[in-house]
């Protein structure tokens, strides 16, 4: 059974326009799922539906056997789905890193000694141990966001959701955050859902969902997704620069295969081509 499943879920903020329309999707344990869409496509609403911050108008979200329809299971769902939001500044409650990370476990009523262990574990997971006593105000964007991830990990969720968590970071910060979460997915088998509008971030995902106007318009492996260039552009998305250049080269008669996603791949294919000549 899937760890998280969404069954024909619709939701609207104002009861007029649906932010999410009839969405069904599943996420398996240990999977790395990416959800992409342009700004305002409804992808962030999905994150809030995953952990019960929004309640579906129709349809059902089930996490690890707990349904969002059951009021009592809300807490259980939030324990299992940890969400990291976009602005690192707006998700910290304390002026010292360890106090902030303690916030989640404190809410769960975890014993004092165990909270200390959890802080240690969470900070180690994001590689920020030496900042335990620091003030978040003095950290870089990427570091702040890693602290936010640690704050969520201290709750020991089964699913880690990044709700555009890299959108406000510089390239360095983006790289840091992605490295951390992708390592967690690989090494600790944390189920990962990355909601983003950066096409190059979804390259390594197991499964990609493309969202447009609150609907899922496309799903598949990154390779399958990137092959549908026109459809992506209709959804306000664009291929990563490497794919775009590959596309142009193909148009100009260079014999490259379809579905090139990264600059390394493109360089390799060009190398293969050169050797054939």
């Amino acid at each position: 059974m899937a760890l998280l499943s969404m069954e024909k879920v619709s939701f609207s903020y104002d009861k007029k326009i649906d932010a999410v329309k009839n969405v069904s999707l599943t996420v398996d344990e240990g999977e790395y799922v990416a959800i992409i869409g342009h700004n305002g496509s409804g992808k962030s609403t999905l994150a809030k539906l995953f952990n019960g911050l929004c309640k579906p108008d129709s349809g059902e979200v089930v996490v690890d056997g707990f349904s969002c329809k059951d009021k009592k299971s809300l807490f259980e769902i939030r324990k299992r789905v940890g969400v990291v939001f976009q602005n690192p500044d707006n998700q910290m409650v304390a002026s010292i890193v360890e106090d902030d990370i303690a916030f989640g476990p404190e809410n769960l009523g975890v014993k004092r000694e165990e909270i200390g262990e959890r802080i240690q574990f969470a900070l180690a997971s994001v590689g920020m141990e030496e900042f335990r006593k620091s003030s978040p105000a003095r950290l870089s964007g990427g570091q702040k966001q890693r602290i936010a991830i640690a704050g969520v990990l201290a709750i020991k969720p089964k699913i880690l959701v990044l709700d555009e968590s890299t959108a406000m970071l510089d390239p360095q910060g983006r790289k840091e955050v992605l490295e951390v979460v992708e390592r967690l997915n690989k090494e600790q088998k944390t189920t990962l859902i990355n909601i983003t509008h950066y096409m190059d971030e979804v390259v390594r995902a197991d499964k990609v969902y493309v969202v447009n106007d609150g609907e899922i318009v496309l799903s598949g492996t990154p390779k399958e997704i990137f092959a549908k260039r026109e459809l992506l552009e209709e959804c306000g998305l664009e291929l990563p620069v490497s794919s775009k250049i590959a596309q142009k080269l193909i148009e100009l008669g260079v014999n490259l295969p379809d579905g090139i996603l990264t600059k390394e791949q493109l360089a390799e294919e060009l190398c293969v081509l050169k050797q054939k000549i």
Binding site: K244, I245, K248, L252, G253, V254, L270, K274, I277
Partner: peptide, 17 residues
Amino acid sequence: TESDFADKTAKAIVGGK
């Protein structure tokens, strides 16, 4: 620029063939 790069690369590779 992407277009200049693509043009010149295509010329270098396809042209060479």
